[in-house]
Amino acid sequence: MSLHATLRVPDRDVDVAVEVPTGRTVALLGPNGAGKSTTLAAVAGLIRPAAGEVRLGERILFCANGSSRFIPPHSRGIGLLAQDARLFPHLSVLDNVAFGPRSAGMPRGRARDRARHWLAQVDATELADRRPGALSGGQAQRVAIARALATEPHLLLLDEPLSALDVETAPSVRQLLRRVLAGRTTLLVTHDVLDAVLLADDVVVLDGGRVVEQGPTSRVLTHPRSSFAARIAGLNLVRGALDGDVVVGPEGMRVAGLVDDSSVEGMDAVAVFSPAAVGVYRVAPQGSPRTEVRATVTDLEPHGHQVRVHTAYLSADITPAALADLALTPGDEVVLTVKASEVAIYAG
């Protein structure tokens, strides 16, 4: 069943429209405070938007456009999986999973059978008799997934389901989600590019309570139009007006690159390039590359086998040897260069 949601929550300055086609997973990306959790809560019915409409298939769950309708959360047929597992501490694992079916009026025995089935689906059969307090984070999240699925929801909402897990546990739970989400209509809030790539078909990027970008995951991550999407894709993005094959960005920054066909002189465009394509110098190098930006180092951090140099607008990846050579510390003035052949310019 497909989800169509248009929501306005003035309290939190959120005004978004999100669609999830039947059987697909949409990732809701965005920085903290972008309105992701508010959107999720509004779809789940945990908060009531000031205006808009939430439709699941043909069923209107909420509308406040002239007429008014609000289906409470327990009647929406929407499952929710939060950051933390939130297993009921006073019930066994089995009864946690059986809670949904029981609430729907199923007799205890059948509800427990159903719970065992779903525990098997998440490889947690042996945990059935344990108390939630005796589970590890990963085990608890597996059980929470089984509990959410046991109600056979029409729509599954996932709110950063892996963010509370440690790095050893997250991959296996992510694999589990990948398996169980296949063919389910799912809205996934995340700030992790890996979740988006591995779990989502499409992404919607929120910033400041508005949708700033949406589309298939692969396109958004390779051709981001928003700085947030670029950042989580690990790319530099400069937005500005197109002048020939140059994007004129903030503070007169000029980035030259390869312009795609759709772009027209003078229109808004973005220049996107990898930090690995950025050269870092103490003084401007010989041969004057087309793109040369003066900047101040704000931060240095390890990034894989390299070191990422952050400045106000751009980032660069250099080798530790190069870093030692340059003897950089935050606050140093540097010159950044980018080869035009490594910069993609398209309509923003």
Partner: peptide
Amino acid sequence: RFEEVAATLGARPTT
């Protein structure tokens, strides 16, 4: 937190 989860699992307010 737990009450919200319970609601999304289909539990009525009394439950």
